[in-house]
Amino acid sequence: MTQTKVNNIQRLKKVFSQSLSISESQINDELEYNSIQQWDSTAHMALVAQLEAEFNIMLDIDDIIDMSSVGKCKEILKKYNVEL
């Protein structure tokens, strides 16, 4: 695993933890949108904004509504050349 990849995974966890107000230990690839109370539509908007700021990208609408889990989010970010 490259250092960039390790860093990016850490950055991603931090973004999720901050925007959903959950602890980093709760974050895994299987965590799904709306499966926990904290990940609701308001938090999803905050998540999108923070992802865009953290990785300096602009997410497409289709990607925003497809981002249904942490795993899915990683897949999507890869499309934007974020090494994960």
Partner: peptide
């Protein structure tokens, strides 16, 4: 469906 999901649209 939440409006944030593909299934809603």
């Amino acid at each position: 469906a939440s409006i944030m999901t593909r299934s809603f649209w």
